[in-house]
Amino acid sequence: MKIPKRIQPLVDDGIVDDVLRQLMSGKEATVYVVQCGSEVRCAKVYKEASKRSFKNAVLYNEGRKVRNGRNARAMQKGSKFGREQQEEIWQSTEVDALYKFADAGIRVPTPYGCFGGVLIMELITDAEGYAAPRLNDVSMSEQEALKDHAQMMDYIVKMLSLGIIHGDLSEFNVLVDEQGPVIIDLPQAVDAAGNNNAKKMFLRDVNNMKQYYAQFAPSLSTTRYGDEIWAIFESGNLTPKTKLTGNFVDSEINADVDTVLDEINAAREEELARLARIDNAD
């Protein structure tokens, strides 16, 4: 096929030998299957912000730190240079997360580098060597659903232990090969401690996984892994080896406003009585 304009510099530099075909086009990027020497890999070409349909990107950018003051000011002003810096951060967030997740034992495509807005990474394949399907295109037995869901919860715990939330996790951002689920699409990864929307995004991610797998394993529909994991995280006790139950009980301790007001009034009356006794003594 004709080599896309954004990939041509990689061909010129010998990083990519040939573009075999387009694999998919999404809201944030177009992915191609490329030949790199003897290896067949993926080339993820990020779309420019003006052409990207990813909603509420500002919510995901919250908490991302920019060390260079000049860059931060440019981004705030929305200048051309600032937009370029924002794009670089958007792309590097995914690359950084891929390396961190792989090191933590979370299955993601192996990254081979990002060059001018093009991320070269491993092509995840099925048993026949074809591109692995996304989770939303896969049917499974109840046993398989329970197993893969448990694996996803393990990955989610490991991610949060690193202080990172996927932010857009769903059946469309998970591939499935012979070994199980593989997490993809991470440019919107969220800092769990620095983003005010972190908890909401985290619970949504976990709930998306529950809803999908519960189609095949109905017992999962009543689980509350999201609340359980987040509560352990907030307590400071979450580790990559944390064991989960899927159970969570909401606090039943509710403030009794009338009782509180009665206690306040009683204390006030007692203080007034004390002051009155002092005045009488004088």
Rank of each mutant, 00 (worst) to 15 (best):
N208R: 07
L244K: 02
S219P: 01
I229R: 05
G26E: 07
A29Y: 04
T110M: 02
M1R: 12
D279P: 00
F115E: 07
D168W: 02
A72T: 03
K55N: 06
A145H: 11
R204D: 06
L59M: 13
D258W: 14
D103W: 01
Q143C: 04
Q22S: 08
V19L: 15
N196P: 00
L220T: 03
R52M: 13
S161N: 05
K65E: 08
P111S: 05
Q22D: 03
D227M: 02
A131R: 06
A29S: 14
L98W: 02
M24N: 09
L238K: 08
G167M: 04
T245W: 03
K47T: 05
L261I: 15
S161F: 01
I3P: 10
E88T: 06
E87H: 05
Y60F: 14
F172A: 03
R274C: 01
N195L: 03
V16R: 08
E128F: 15
Y213Q: 00
P133Q: 09
I184N: 10
V33L: 12
V108K: 00
I164R: 03
I229D: 04
N197D: 14
I106W: 07
Q215M: 09
E252N: 09
I183V: 15
Q179C: 09
Q8M: 12
P218Y: 08
I156S: 02
P9N: 10
G194M: 07
V249Q: 06
Q8V: 09
A281L: 10
A198S: 12
A267T: 10
A192Y: 09
P181A: 07
S38C: 02
I232C: 02
V206Y: 07
A217C: 03
L98M: 13
K100R: 15
K147Y: 09
F101D: 09
S251W: 01
E270R: 01
I278M: 11
L203H: 11
D96G: 08
A145Y: 13
V260M: 14
I120F: 14
V260L: 15
V34E: 07
D126C: 09
L119M: 15
T259S: 14
G37F: 08
E252Q: 11
I156E: 04
N265I: 10
L272I: 06
L146I: 07
